[in-house]
């Protein structure tokens, strides 16, 4: 067992057996989507025009929820101490943590996304929706990791976390919603969708390193 796997499976198992977030987050996602027709009216035309942005906002909010708990448990019960003293690089830990985080908090949203698009009256191909939601949720997870590590041990962690992370989520929101919007007008949504994937290509390798640095700073 490599440290990466060890952490990945530890996080996944403890979440799944906890009656975990992977069930709760899609419910939250659906709940927010349900609020839109209730607040904007059931007129599908209205919903349709607003749907791309609304779906991205719902995914963004759902991505905020798991962030606060991400590292606090490991910090409190002393696991973090042992990780810092581990002979293996801490990046294994953050890498495993990121993948587990996405499987728990990103993948369920991705799977739900075509269904939600359908419910909001968008008539678009489901593979296209997936191609937008996969990089978008990954970016939410990666940026969220950095913010979670940054605010670890801070007072009023959860409010602070939202304040820190939402401005950084803005480009993902814009390109995600833009891509969904362009899909709707049958314009191939290549541009914004590629921006998302490019953002991912940049963020993915940087995040474990930055998160590791931040965790080390928090342990001092």
């Amino acid at each position: 067992m490599t440290p990466f796997n060890a952490i990945l499976f530890k996080d996944l198992k403890s979440d799944f057996r906890h009656g975990g977030q992977f069930l709760f987050l899609p419910a939250f996602f659906l709940l927010i989507v349900m609020l839109y027709p209730l607040s904007l009216g059931a007129n599908l035309k209205v919903l349709q025009t607003a749907a791309p942005g609304l779906l991205m906002i719902a995914a963004l909010l759902a991505s905020l929820l798991p962030l606060e708990k991400l590292y606090t448990d490991d910090m409190k019960d002393g696991t973090m101490d042992l990780l810092m003293l581990s002979p293996q690089p801490v990046s294994f830990y953050t890498g495993g943590k990121i993948l587990a985080h996405w499987i728990i908090a990103g993948l369920p949203l991705v799977i739900m996304s075509p269904l939600m698009a359908l419910m909001m009256g968008l008539s678009i191909n489901w593979p296209d929706v997936l191609l937008i939601f996969i990089p978008a949720t990954l970016l939410f997870v990666l940026i969220g990791q950095i913010a979670a590590a940054l605010s670890l041990g801070a007072r009023r962690g959860s409010v602070l976390l939202a304040l820190l992370v939402i401005p950084l989520y803005i480009p993902v929101l814009i390109f995600g919603a833009g891509a969904l919007d362009l899909l709707q007008t049958e314009n191939p949504a290549k541009g914004p969708m590629l921006f998302l994937w490019a953002g991912l290509a940049f963020t993915l390798p940087v995040t474990p390193l930055v998160t590791t640095k931040l965790l080390k700073m928090q342990m001092d």
Partner: peptide
């Protein structure tokens, strides 16, 4: 660290907002 992350992000945010 937040300022650093923010300053890397700022051009991206600026670009995305202009695109939007």
């Amino acid at each position: 660290w937040l300022v650093l992350v923010g300053s890397v992000n700022l051009p991206i945010i600026k670009f995305s907002v202009e695109w939007w």
